[in-house]
Each structure stands twice: as structure tokens, then as C-alpha cells.
Design a binder for these strands. Sequence first.
DNA 1: ACGTGCGGGACGCCCCGTTCAT
DNA 2: ATGAACGGGGCGTCCCGCACGT
Lengths: 197, 197, 197, 197
Amino acid sequence: VPQPSLKEAIIDAGEAEFHDRGYAAAGIAGITSRASAPKGSFYNHFESKETLALEVLQRYADGQRLDILIDEARPPLDRIRDHFDFVAKRLSEDTHVRGCLLANFAAEVTDETQTLRRGVNEIHQGWVRAIVANLEAAAPTSARTFVPEDVAWALIDAYQGATVRTRASGSRAPIENFLSTTLPLVLSSIEAGSSDS
Amino acid sequence: VPQPSLKEAIIDAGEAEFHDRGYAAAGIAGITSRASAPKGSFYNHFESKETLALEVLQRYADGQRLDILIDEARPPLDRIRDHFDFVAKRLSEDTHVRGCLLANFAAEVTDETQTLRRGVNEIHQGWVRAIVANLEAAAPTSARTFVPEDVAWALIDAYQGATVRTRASGSRAPIENFLSTTLPLVLSSIEAGSSDS
Amino acid sequence: VPQPSLKEAIIDAGEAEFHDRGYAAAGIAGITSRASAPKGSFYNHFESKETLALEVLQRYADGQRLDILIDEARPPLDRIRDHFDFVAKRLSEDTHVRGCLLANFAAEVTDETQTLRRGVNEIHQGWVRAIVANLEAAAPTSARTFVPEDVAWALIDAYQGATVRTRASGSRAPIENFLSTTLPLVLSSIEAGSSDS
Amino acid sequence: VPQPSLKEAIIDAGEAEFHDRGYAAAGIAGITSRASAPKGSFYNHFESKETLALEVLQRYADGQRLDILIDEARPPLDRIRDHFDFVAKRLSEDTHVRGCLLANFAAEVTDETQTLRRGVNEIHQGWVRAIVANLEAAAPTSARTFVPEDVAWALIDAYQGATVRTRASGSRAPIENFLSTTLPLVLSSIEAGSSDS
DNA sequence: ACGTGCGGGACGCCCCGTTCAT
DNA sequence: ATGAACGGGGCGTCCCGCACGT
């Protein structure tokens, strides 16, 4: 058989369907059918639709190259730039015309699916913490006028808005606006502050 | 009965349910029940769930005080600041714990509901155009290094990311990060460029 | 106003919708809309969908020229021939591509709509009685081997089968098969029997 | 439970409900309830109400003993007589007080349900072709004045009219009128023509 | 008396996420 | 591992009644 396991195929299909239709609109039947798996097989591998979404989300986050953010060989702010370069490149592939899966989930998922909600939050937190670490490293000695966590969130906010706009089909490639407009502005202000010492 | 008409009550309930649960997860039954209306009455007033969503969205956009953006009594960039002050204040009310309805829809709605998709896009476009007008007015004579539409989108992107994060329950009030971090940075860079003449 | 009354317009629309879609599949909304009448006006003129159907059916039957069957100026069997010639011509008009409304109702309507059921039966009975009278007149003195009512039913059966097949889109114009095959056979056998005296 | 499978039970119930109420008036809920099946199980076995109707119709046609029409041990016209004897006997059972299911569908179904419409047409065509073959065999050498296909349609028309009348509750058992009046007349005229050689 | 819009609830077909028997 | 049982719910539409307006 070409597929080593149905589980992997279902996760692939789940990511695709969640991305294409959103969490609520995607259905177990559509996912298993896209995975060429029998519908009944779903619950051999996942407790529920929610747990599938969590696995999909985790794997998606694992592909975001958070490792770039802890690559000690480069200056802290460059790590941030390189990281967002990577995720922007990923988003501009034609397999990702629906924006960032994580941003879409953050906007759609509610407390009615508590476990999933918590999963989304945790992944967000992991991301912001990695960025915060670099921001703190970028201005270690100076009297800083910025709060690293605030800036980290500001970056992620701008990035998420851009990817939300990708799904909303704004007039220009939105992720490029983020890369050419918001990201440089924010980071250059950090550099300015950091050299104020 | 205190309600002047069931239609208004259904729109109110629709906004609430869409906000609370998202577009796909909200149901006609829940909406009409929240409006104390019989389910069958829904289609006396709306052709479909999609058209209700469009009316809800339009009314929501009408409440965003776009008029502030064209108030000639104030300097252009101040109009932008005041406008976002207003929408941020609105978001921080406890009736809006779910983030910005427009941002949520932009992230959730797909092309499977074409009419709704187009409606979301149009409202986005109207918003960006209003901001663009002010950005152009802010730097009329100088050699500008910024593209007004890009900057407008950058602001909306950052705002949307912040409101998406509102639904995602980040640790701090996210809209305040936007107001205190991203918005001043972007606008002050415009001011700096504008005085370069 | 161009319409003398909405009632007449609704009956017209009802006949068209019942013919196009069948009794159960046709809806009040579709009928009133086709009549350019507001939905609420329906019940000013008709007690129910069933009573509309009865009025439609009655008017349809009134257009079948039963008077030909009692035209004393012609021989009895000629009356039958002429009558069926007329209804066949009516059916072959392009406004009647759906077969005979009466035959369609006879096949679709059940006892769940008792009043309508009875109306269909009565119209059928009126028709067969008119034909029976002519068959009895065609062989008044001879020892008849045929039961006039049976033969009348046989004619109507064949005619109905033909019109049912019209809706079923048989390969050839079915009503012509009836006129050229079944009708002559049955009538000529009556004539033969009648001359046995 | 005595039922070997719910699918078979649903087909049985579907035939009964379609027969009792007609295609449009019969509902999925009524069918599954009659089959003692949960409503949601329906779509495990059938894509839609239309496809159930097609299966029901096919099974109904398979029970019409078309094999009698190709039984080479008997003279061609006798095959026709025997075949109609069989279907008439079937119709006179008290489980078939609603007339012939195929005839009812032929009258009720419209192009709005295209697939079903086509299925009805195909079954009709199969039937008429089987009869045509016998009519052609009945007069192999003589100069025929009849078109076999026309006569086949005339027979089926008359039969359908009779069964339509069964649902319409005519005064006498209508199928017997067909057997004692139309069928002998038509066939004997064939026999007469065949001996004209 | 008729036009008119909406209240009203039941029901249409279809599909959901999940569990169970084989 | 699979196909089917299972019940609840999705959106849309049904036929009908009512209250108000003319």
C-alpha cells in the first residue's frame, strides 16, 4: 500500500479540509473521503473531530520553523525577520491560498469547543514566547521603553491580520504588505531604542 | 411587545449569535429562538442565512463611525487615530468579548458562500479607501516613500490580528497593544516622512 | 388595473403550476408568485390548496367539450370520435406538454386529500357517463355483447395512458397512437356488433 | 429482528409509501419509520430520495415477469396475454389497491427530478420493446397494416389508464375492463391481420 | 370584501458527529 | 478495520391564519 498508515492520510486530509472550509464547515465524511479512508476508520485514530483538529494544528505549528527563532548563530532581530520570511514564503505557496490555518482557527473557534480553544491559545503563547526571548536579547542593557511581550504580540497581530486578509482576498498580496510595511517599522524602532544606551 | 418588529429582533439576535459562535456554527433555530421569533418567520424577512449575515455585517460596519474619517474639522492622521480609538472602545465593551465581527467573518467565510464572501470584501474595501484618503491628505506635497493603500492595509491588518486575538483570549487586552504599539509607530513614521519636504 | 380580479389570475397560475409540477410539488407561494399576487391574498379566494385544485380541475373539465358528446345532430360514435379529436388537438398544443391534467391528478391524488379525491372521481364519472350514453345509442336494438360502461372505461383508459405517456416522453406522439390505433379498433368493433341485428 | 438488513426494509417501506402516497407526498421520515429504521440510516444506503425511488422502481419492474414475454414455448400473442394476466393478478391483490406503481410514477414525475424521470422512461421503453418483439413475431409473413410499436404502446396505454383509474377508485375493478375489453380487441385484430396472408 | 405582510409551527430532505457489531 | 446504526440537527419551505388597511 502506498500510505504507511491511514492516520497520516487523515491528518493530511483534515488539514486540507479545515484550511479550505473552516473548522465547523469541514466534516468527518469529507475528511475521510479525501483521505480515501472509510468513514468508520476515523474513530480508530482520533477521539473526536476536536482532537483531530488539535493534531492538525500541532503539526502545522511544527512546520512554522520556530527553530529559526532560537538559532544562536544569528542576531536576535534577524531571527525574527528570517522566521517571518519563512512563514510568508509558505503562505505565498499556492497550497496556502486560504491564509494561515492558525489565524483562521483563532478567529473561528469558540469556547464551545474548550479543548480546541485551549490548544489554539497554547500554540499562540508558544509562538509569542519565542519572539519575546529575541526581543529581550535585542536590548539587554539599555533602558528600554518597550515591553517585549507587547511588541511580540503586535508583530503576530499584524501577521495574523495579513493572513486573514489573504482569505478575504484583499486587492494586493497582503502578506507582502506585512513584510514590507509593518515588520520593518516595528523592528527598526526596536533597533533605534536599543542603540539609545 | 417591546420589539417594534421581528425583523429587527432577528438581526439583533443574528449579530449576537454570529459573534458568539461564528457564522457556520450559528443556526437559524438559535437565532430565531434568541429573538423570541418562530423559526418559520425567518424567511419572511431574509432569503437565507447568508443574506441575514450580509445585513448584520452591513449594520455592524455602519456602526464603525467611518464618518470620523471624513470629518474635515480635524487633521487627517488624527481622524485615523480617533476612528481607531472609537472602534477600540467599542471592542472593549463587554458586549464585544468575541472580537471584531468583521475580522472574524474575514477569517471564517470561504468562497462556498460566494455572496457573503463578496460582501465581506466590499466592506473591507470601503474601509481601506476611507483610510487611504486621509493618508494621501497627510502628505500632499512631500515626496512620499509610502504607498497609502499599503499603509492603510497594514493598519487594518494589525487591528484585525488584535481582534482575532481577542477571540483567542490572549493574556492582555490585545486591542490595547494595537493602540499603544502598532498604530503610533505607523502613524508617526508617516508624520516624519511628511515633514521631510 | 389590467387584471379584473386576482382570483382568476390565481386559478390560471394554479392550473399552470399543477400541470408543470404536479399537485403535491406545486406550492401556494409559487402559484401566487406566478399570478403576481401577494401570498396572503390566496386565502381571500380559496379555503385551501385543495379547493383551488378543485376549481382548476372543474374549469379544465369544462374546457373538454363534453357538449360534443351530446350533440344530437351527429351519429353517436361520431360524437365520440369528434370529442376525442378535440381533446387530442388540445393536448398537442405546446401549452399542454405535460399531458392531461385530469389524468395526472387521477394518478397522483390519494385519499389523504379526500375532497380532491372525490372531485376527481366525479369528473371522471361524468365523462364516462356521457360516453356510455352514446355507446348505448349506437347499438340500441341488437343483442349486444359489450357492456357500454366497460367500453367507455376502455376508451378513457387508453386515452389516459396516452396522456400519462406524454408526460413520460414516449418516443412518438402518444396521443396519435391512441387516435389511430385504439380508438378505431374499439369503435369499429362496436359498429360491427351493432350491425349484427 | 426478522429483517436481514435495513436497506431491504427501507426499499420495502419506500415501495409501500410511494404506492400509498405518491412520490412527492411520501417523506423520508415516513419511509424510515415504516421500516423501523432510524432516520439518519437512510443516507447510509441511498444518495437521495430520488435514488431510492429508482431502486424501488427497478425492483418493481423486475417483478413484472417480463420473462413471460420471451418464453419461446408459447405463441407470441399468448405470451402477451399471459403477461398481462400476471400483472393484472398482481394488481388485484389487496396489497396493490393503489394501481401500478410504474403508471403512477409516469404520471406524477416531472423533469424537475431528471434522474428519476429518465429511469421511468427507460423502464417503459424496455417494456414496450419486449411487447413489440412478440407483435412482430405474430405476423411475420403477411402484409401488415399495423405498426408493432404503436400497438405495443396502445396496450400499455390502456393498461396504464386502467391502473390510473384504480387509484382514482372507478366503480368497477378497472384492470378487468382492460383484460376483457381492450386487450382482446387489439390482439384479435392482430390475429385477423396475420391470417390475411 | 378584498389586498397585504407577516406570525406561526410543522415538516421537507439531507447530513452531522459518534458508537457499535461484525 | 469497517459498514452501518443512531439520533439529533442543519437550512429551507410548507400550508395556513391573523390583523390591519383600504
